[in-house]
């Protein structure tokens, strides 16, 4: 058996770490702003993947309809939209067949709202991990916005079928599709960071989020085109990042008109939300285990 050391020795950490091959890991009170440790997040990529897969498995394991749920949500939204907004209110759809127009909207929207839900609950839902195990806390919200991409991919296959049926073809802007997807994921992540952090301290967030996404849905061009919004309100309208994202998706996938220049405001809000979200999360993350 090895010999226990004499405690209260005189060797200092500095001397010791000079001859070491393995790095010290320090834990001290954080003062001021910390840099985002991307290297550490990368080191924990397997955990991100694992949590995301766990989420998928748990969701579909005991569900009879399994993966079919991936398309039920946008389909149900589409059915309501066709009856209410198209047949009754005769909402225009940028000269596109309304089912194609609205189904894309709902597919993108279901990804966003369910990922936002998931990210918001990611810390509280993993409370047993957060209070008992160390991992970079940002792993949880990152993992939470990934699984729904699978659902979205399935819904996009169905969308392709709908487009073929209605004879809608995308233009060269299709090449920009990854940009809109990236923006969509980052939006869910950025907003999710803020709500997840708030949710740790205030459980009200879990209740408020349903209301928030409902209002947000109607403030976004999901069932109606953004061209319906009058010119003088258009700048304010574009503050909602979903406006630019949905306009971009429809341009790329359905060959709708190119998003107007004012949609650049959406990109700006997204950036502010993302940076602000990361900062806010980092400022609070070391307290999570004490408060949750």
């Amino acid at each position: 058996m090895s010999v226990g050391g004499r405690p209260r020795g005189t060797a200092t950490g500095v001397q010791v770490s000079q001859q070491s091959s393995v790095e010290w890991t320090e834990n001290r009170a954080t003062a001021g702003r910390r840099a985002l440790d991307l290297a550490e997040l990368w080191a924990y990529r397997e955990l991100v993947l694992f949590l995301a897969l766990r989420d998928l498995k748990v969701r579909y394991r005991q569900a009879v309809f399994g993966v079919a749920w991936a398309i039920f949500q946008p389909l149900a939204g589409l059915a309501v939209a066709i009856v209410v907004f198209h047949n009754l209110a005769d909402i225009p759809s940028d000269r596109l067949p309304y089912p194609v127009f609205a189904f894309l909207g709902f597919t993108v929207w279901s990804y966003f709202s369910s990922s936002l839900d998931g990210a918001t609950a990611s810390l509280v839902g993993n409370a047993s991990l957060v209070t008992k195990i160390y991992f970079p806390r940002m792993v949880a919200p990152i993992a939470a916005v990934l699984p729904r991409l699978v659902d979205t991919a399935i819904a996009f296959l169905l969308l392709g079928g709908l487009m073929a049926w209605y004879g809608v073809t995308p233009g060269p802007a299709l090449l920009l599709l990854p940009v809109w997807f990236a923006a969509l994921v980052l939006l869910a992540f950025g907003a999710g960071l803020v709500l997840a952090t708030l949710n740790v301290t205030y459980r009200d967030v879990a209740n408020a989020i349903g209301l928030l996404t409902q209002l947000w849905l109607f403030a976004s061009p999901v069932v109606y085109p953004s061209s319906l919004v009058p010119g003088r309100w258009r700048l304010l309208y574009a503050v909602n990042p979903m406006v630019g994202i949905l306009d971009g998706f429809r341009w790329s996938v359905l060959g709708a008109p190119r998003p107007p220049a004012v949609d650049a405001v959406s990109a700006l809000t997204l950036l502010v939300l993302l940076i602000g979200g990361v900062r806010y999360f980092q400022r609070c993350e070391r307290r999570f285990a004490d408060v949750i």
Binding site: G13, S20, V22, E23, W24, T25, E26, N27, R28, A29, T30, V130, T131, K132, I133, Y134, R286, R287, A289, D290
Partner: peptide, 19 residues
């Protein structure tokens, strides 16, 4: 604190390698 689950109010801990 040693596992870095929570941070100290003051002072520091150092661990070498995987904990």
């Amino acid at each position: 604190i040693l596992t870095r689950i929570t941070e100290p109010t003051s002072g520091v801990t150092r661990t070498r390698g995987r904990v």
